[in-house]
C-alpha cells in the first residue's frame, strides 16, 4: 500500500447494517446471495451420482471428507460454547466402538446399531466429560486430548473389545454410493440444523456461555448443565461419523482413536474459520482431498496439517470462510488519507 493511503471497505448495497439482514431488489441479487450456497449444496448432492466420472477412489475421498466435516462441525459447535477440543477422536472412537459392539455382540443391524451407537456414544461422552465442565480454561482441552490416547492404551493393554485386533466382520452397508449419500445428507442436515439452532433463544444461551459465563450464572442458569447439553449435541454428529465409518469399512479397531481424527477436524475447523459451521465443512473438503494427493508422504502429512494449523492460528485466525465472505460482500479500495486531501 502506498504511504499516506488507507484501505477502505464498503459493504455492497445488498448487505445492510447487520450481518443477517439483506435488502433484495432483483432476481440478480437473489442469485448473488443464494448462488454460492446453492452451488455448494447442489455440488454435494450431485457428487455421488458422478461415480463413473470420478471413480470409486475419489468417491471414497468424498466420503472421508464428509466424515471429517462432521467432526469439524462438532468441533465448531463446542467452540461456539467456549470449549476447545483437542480430541475429536474420542467422540469418533466411542461411536465406532459402540456400533461395533452392538453389531458384533448383540447382532443388531446397521439400521439400529448406527443410531443407537450415535445416541449412546454421545451420552457416554457427556457423562465422562461432565465433571470437567465445572471448570473454565484449558481443562476441557486437556481432558479431550488425554482421553482418546488413554482409551487406546487401555484397549491395547487389556485386550477388551477385540484388543489390538479390533472387531472385524461387521455387517456391510449397501454400497459406496449409499455411504457417500448418507454422509452428504447428514453433513448438510447438521450444518443447517446447527445454523438454525444458534438463532433460537436456547442457542443464544449457549453462545452467551462463550461470551461471559459469570453473567450466565448471574442470569440464573447453570453453566455446567448447559455446557453438558452442548457437549451432548456436539457429540452426536461425531459419534455418528464413527458409527457410519465403522460399518462402511466393516471393522473397528484402535485406529478409531488415532491422532488423525483429532488433528484433521481441528485443522479443518481452524482453516475454514473457527465458529463458522460452513467454514469447517469447507475446510474438510479442502484438506481431505489435499491430504489424499499427498498420500505418498506418509506421516509427514500430519506434520503438514500441524504446520497449516499453526499458520492459520497465527496468520489468518478468521479463516478462509470469513475471509471469502468479506471479499464477496465488500468492495475494497485504496483511498488517500484525509490529511492529504486538505
Amino acid at each position: 500500500m502506498k504511504a499516506g493511503h488507507r484501505k477502505e471497505r464498503i459493504d455492497r448495497g445488498i448487505k445492510v447494517r447487520a450481518d443477517e439482514i439483506f435488502a433484495i431488489s432483483s432476481y440478480r441479487e437473489i442469485l448473488y446471495l443464494m448462488g454460492p450456497r446453492l452451488l455448494a449444496i447442489m455440488g454435494l448432492l450431485l457428487f455421488p451420482l458422478f461415480r463413473d466420472v470420478t471413480g470409486a477412489y475419489w468417491q471414497t475421498v468424498g466420503f472421508i471428507a464428509c466424515i471429517i466435516a462432521l467432526l469439524a462441525l462438532s468441533w465448531n459447535f463446542l467452540f461456539s460454547v467456549g470449549l476447545v477440543s483437542l480430541g475429536q477422536a474420542f467422540f469418533f472412537g466411542v461411536g465406532a466402538y459402540f456400533t461395533g459392539y452392538f453389531n458384533h455382540f448383540l447382532g443388531l443391524g446397521p439400521l439400529f446399531s448406527i443410531p443407537l451407537a450415535t445416541v449412546c456414544g454421545a451420552v457416554l461422552c457427556t457423562i465422562v466429560i461432565f465433571p470437567v465442565l465445572r471448570l473454565r480454561g484449558i481443562y476441557f482441552a486437556l481432558i479431550t486430548f488425554a482421553l482418546p490416547l488413554f482409551l487406546m492404551r487401555i484397549i491395547e493393554a487389556t485386550g477388551y473389545l477385540g484388543g489390538t485386533e479390533g472387531i472385524s466382520g461387521l455387517q456391510r452397508l449397501p454400497g459406496l454410493t449409499f455411504s457417500v449419500y448418507v454422509s452428504v445428507v447428514v453433513v448438510l442436515a447438521v450444518t443447517f440444523i446447527y445454523l438454525r439452532f444458534f438463532d433460537t433463544d436456547y442457542g443464544l444461551v449457549l453462545r452467551a456461555i462463550h461470551d461471559n459465563d459469570m453473567s450466565v450464572l448471574a442470569g440464573g442458569l447453570s453453566v455446567q448443565w448447559y455446557k453438558a447439553q452442548a457437549v451432548f449435541i456436539a457429540a452426536l454428529p461425531a459419534t455418528f461419523a464413527g458409527a457410519l465409518m465403522t460399518h462402511h469399512y466393516r471393522i473397528v479397531g484402535m485406529p478409531a482413536f488415532a491422532m488423525e481424527y483429532s488433528i484433521l477436524p481441528l485443522t479443518a475447523a481452524v482453516v475454514g474459520g473457527t465458529g463458522t459451521f460452513a467454514g469447517g465443512v469447507l475446510g474438510a473438503f479442502i484438506l481431505v482431498p489435499f491430504s489424499e494427493m499427498l498420500r505418498a508422504f506418509g506421516t509427514l502429512r500430519i506434520v503438514m496439517y500441524s504446520a497449516l494449523l499453526l499458520l492459520f492460528v497465527v496468520g489468518l485466525p478468521e479463516g478462509i470462510y470469513r475471509f471469502a465472505q468479506r471479499k464477496y460482500f465488500q468492495f475494497e479500495r485504496i483511498v488517500p488519507l484525509e490529511e492529504e486531501k486538505q
Partner: peptide, 8 residues
C-alpha cells in the same frame, strides 16, 4: 492450538 500444533 498453536503449541499443540508445534508439538505434533
Amino acid at each position: 492450538i498453536a503449541t499443540f500444533a508445534i508439538g505434533i
